[in-house]
Nucleic acid binder design. Structure first.
Lengths: 172, 172
DNA sequence: GTCTATATTCTGATAGAC
DNA sequence: GTCTATCAGAATATAGAC
């Protein structure tokens, strides 16, 4: 999927990759949808693990540096695997809807992110929405126009500073 | 395509929509790829037309209001047709590459956009990149999480103000 | 210019032998 | 748990009648 996109992988291709016939995969998953669902869940579990690698700064004055680090973790997580990014954040498999089980992991990941942004003073819904829009925008521009490069990745720090300035300037 | 996504439309479906058998379409286009290419080109022509609906403010002091209007035009153009948005700005048809002819229209559209942003003081490449990333981020969040709604659309004005502030504060 | 008929290849999925 | 054999239907595309 990483090379050819989300929808490009057939059961036959997948079977060949893991050294099996396609039919044998049905001993592990009842349908292709179930495989997508497992990938969705696993992706969000990986996301939770990635978020937790941010060293939490004890000093509040370091909030800005920590915010940049949080943004970098998110950006690198997304650009490291564009198929995973599409699956988790762009809902781009036609007809795919995660199971309640898998969706619960996604909700947990969102709440973990919100909790982290709150530490940087980003609490209001509109500020959260502007943060996520900016971050996903940087990621998708990077993936679409400079895959493997750093053109938008280098804009992360100015973007975070800009967002924090905006949040501070625009209180409740 | 608007209802089911870019990759979902087959030649059979398309033929049925226009009251033909799929095979008859080959009298008009030599392949499905050629149809995608025509749509790509037409989409960028529509984009050029949309950009030109922005009333150009004579007074430079109105740059901010005009910038907001430019952003709104872009946002509304994208969210009005998510399939077109994917085709033009997310290159999401696997294996599709526009012909040189169609690509030239896309380049013209990009240059028109850059020319407009220059009027608002956005000239440096990094400032342009941050603008486009923020705008496409707002659009894709709107499409993915609140289709048909206004949750991210209402963030356009604060986002433009934030971007212009950042640009002014960060000169060459 | 549109049709029928068809070629070819691919898809997800099932049945049943071993 | 993996295989062969197979199904039923989808896909893009071509040939040729009218």
């Amino acid at each position: 999927m990483r090379s050819d996109g989300l929808a490009a992988l057939s059961m036959r291709d997948l079977g060949a990759r893991v050294g099996m016939k396609a039919q044998s995969l049905y001993s592990y998953f009842p349908s292709k949808h179930a495989i997508h669902d497992a990938m969705f869940r696993q992706g969000y579990e990986e996301f939770l693990a990635a978020i937790d690698t941010v060293d939490v700064a004890v000093d509040v004055a370091d909030a800005r540096a920590e915010a940049v680090r949080t943004a970098e973790i998110f950006f690198d997580f997304c650009t490291a695997d564009s198929a995973r990014y599409q699956l988790l954040f762009q809902r781009s498999i036609p007809g795919f809807a995660p199971s309640p089980e898998a969706y619960a992991v996604a909700v947990a990941a969102y709440e973990r992110t919100v909790g982290r942004l709150r530490r940087y003073g980003i609490e209001r819904q509109d500020h959260l929405d502007l943060w996520t829009a900016t971050m996903t925008g940087l990621v998708s521009q990077q993936l679409a126009n400079d895959p493997g490069g750093r053109r938008w990745r280098d804009l992360l720090e100015p973007a975070v500073v800009m967002l924090l300035d905006h949040t501070r300037k625009d209180p409740t």
